[in-house]
Design a protein around this nucleic acid. Structure first.
Lengths: 128, 128
DNA sequence: CCTATATTTAACCTATTAGTTATTTAACCT
DNA sequence: AGGTTAAATAACTAATAGGTTAAATATAGG
């Protein structure tokens, strides 16, 4: 058989998360959180070359996390938070797993079901 | 010169984010959010092979997002939320950028400084 | 118009990722 | 012991990611 075509258009969340997965890119965002900045001033403190920085910015831009605007010969980069909000929304659905009070509630609700969760397949003998 | 050694031990947050960046892995977490499950029952509904699933689980495990426990010949996977909490904490520092009321406060605080943010270098002529 | 400055783009390299198939390991059940 | 089921590991592959150096592009300014 042909060696598997596993190519997708990545969704928003995946783009956001993989953009954020790089520490240099998070450092760029941290810097931009204190106000817009041109590319060069982002590169220097991170010990990154200009081309590397530019690429990181492209990744961040494609994830919607920054926008760039020409301003004379510079290009001002600005933090765009919408994807972060989206991420926070996604994360929210897991909040009960680390929030103690919610965790207790959840445990209670699970216990209410009495059954070991029929939808989950975590019985003694899980369905094949 | 040798072609640049950019090898790091990735930090927690990077490991968490890159683990979460894959939609299949997020689907696994979503499934585990409804209770622990053996590997096979995770693979099937995602159309993933067992080896692929096992690898995803290894990635999630190394990020601390799941744990696996032998249970007869099965291996029960359980969601571990600590890294998600850590992520939520990190995200929290950006909350003011999407939360309207906070945003207004932030704008006000920035305006208090009167100066266009000396630490930021976003003046007319940014430092080299 | 020419030159300096700021940034992007191109071409290339290496490591990592996500998948594959085939083989092992582990535990259960006669 | 032998067979079956569950999962992991090995070996391989194609695509992606993050970096490099060198060349191109865009704007400002004498």
């Amino acid at each position: 058989m042909s060696p598997a075509q596993h190519r997708h258009v990545p969704d928003h969340l995946s783009a956001t998360l993989s953009a954020l997965a790089d520490p240099n890119r998070r450092a760029i965002l941290a810097r931009l959180a204190q106000g817009p900045a041109p590319v060069g001033s982002l590169a220097a403190p991170l010990g990154l070359s200009l081309p590397a920085t530019s690429k990181h910015l492209t990744v961040l831009e494609r994830a919607g996390l920054v926008s760039r605007h020409r301003r004379a010969q510079w290009r001002d980069c600005r933090l765009e938070a919408a994807p972060l909000r989206e991420l926070a929304g996604w994360l929210q659905t897991y909040r009960r797993f680390w929030d103690d009070s919610m965790e207790r509630l959840h445990a209670y609700l699970e216990q209410l079901q009495s059954q070991p969760d029929p939808a989950a397949g975590d019985q003694k003998h899980p369905g094949r």
